[in-house]
Nucleic acid binder design. Structure first.
Lengths: 182, 182
DNA sequence: CATATTAAGTCAATAGTGCTGACCTATTTA
DNA sequence: TAAATAGGTCAGCACTATTGACTTAATATG
């Protein structure tokens, strides 16, 4: 973080934008609030993932690795195609990170019993340790945010976030069906 | 979307993971809720940005372009270093997308009056139209989510999201100070 | 006034992560 | 038995981020 800070030393002094005519007035009074959602999502997500990225970077891993790690951890025995359906990336993209995770000993695999074509993926102990370590950084952030906000706000956050995602994502979170886009 | 769907045709049939031993039980009862924050943030952000990406893609633009477009639109007359401070990317990264946006006629610039080194960036009419068009897709999503959730939940969402971002981001959103990381 | 600092720009190389399309092998399905 | 499917590989490419070095013009400082 210190490193990142010195990197942007030329941005230490924020110069407020000079006064210019305000943007065209909007007629919908809730427009600013909806507009603000962009910033809320951008900054929250950025800063949430940033703490994980810092840990991953030490190990030569990136966000894509973390995602695979995370979803395998949450869904032990998941198949490759299951992971593809959740992450909605291509086989080739997943293969790259998955191979790295396996080569590094974070992920194990077993053939399916009822269908030997399937690769059932699980985290190794090493994988669990890493996943937990990465989440530890994020947990701190979440815990603080949740504490600050209080239970009612946490509930509201959850409701809005669920409403923001598509049906497939919701189905996945509810464990009620296929994570594909609808 | 049809294209994307057919791309993942091999993922249409979600195979539930076989029954494996559950992960080590956690002692903190709120752990699942904190854990769920990862998924909430991932899926909501993914699906929120996805609708914008679709529009941008038609124009040969990407997420980085959109970010520049967005923040210039929200901060007319912002300087290059101001944008760098908000986005927290390198000069080189920004230059690439900024040059493209200027070449395509979406962004204009003017030299500062009090400091001629400064480049004051604004959206052109064309730029505004694009920014509005991109946000129109997102607005639909936000409006629906906010309507579904209701005002109390929206407020809760905002509280949690603000708490999730770092001080700099909050300062930016409040217009109370420097957007640098603290 | 001379020098140091700063805003912005450019260049080059590299890395992470996403995509497309084609093709292959082994297994399962019809 | 042939068709379909799970998973894998290969190759090429694109987007977007980084690092570090260097340059020019303008401003700040002593």
């Amino acid at each position: 973080m210190l490193k990142a800070k010195s990197r942007y030393a030329n941005a230490d002094r924020f110069v407020p934008p000079p006064k210019l005519p305000p943007p065209t007035p909007v007629v919908d009074l809730s427009e600013p609030e909806m507009r603000a959602a962009q910033d809320l999502l951008f900054f929250a997500y950025r800063d949430f993932t940033n703490v994980a990225d810092n840990v991953l970077e030490e190990l030569g891993l990136g966000r894509a690795h973390h995602r695979a790690l995370h979803f395998i951890g949450r869904n032990p025995g998941i198949t490759v195609s299951g992971l593809l359906a959740i992450l909605r990336i291509t086989k080739q993209s997943l293969a790259r990170v998955l191979n790295a995770l396996m080569d590094d000993g974070y992920v194990g695999q077993a053939a399916g019993f009822e269908d030997r074509r399937l690769r059932l993926l699980t985290l190794t102990e090493k994988g669990h340790a890493l996943e937990e370590r990465v989440f530890a950084a994020q947990r701190d952030k979440v815990a603080k945010a949740y504490q600050t906000a209080g239970p009612a706000s946490v509930h509201g956050f959850q409701v809005v976030m669920r409403a923001m995602m598509d049906h497939g994502a919701r189905a996945y979170m509810d464990g009620t069906g296929s994570p594909e886009d609808t």
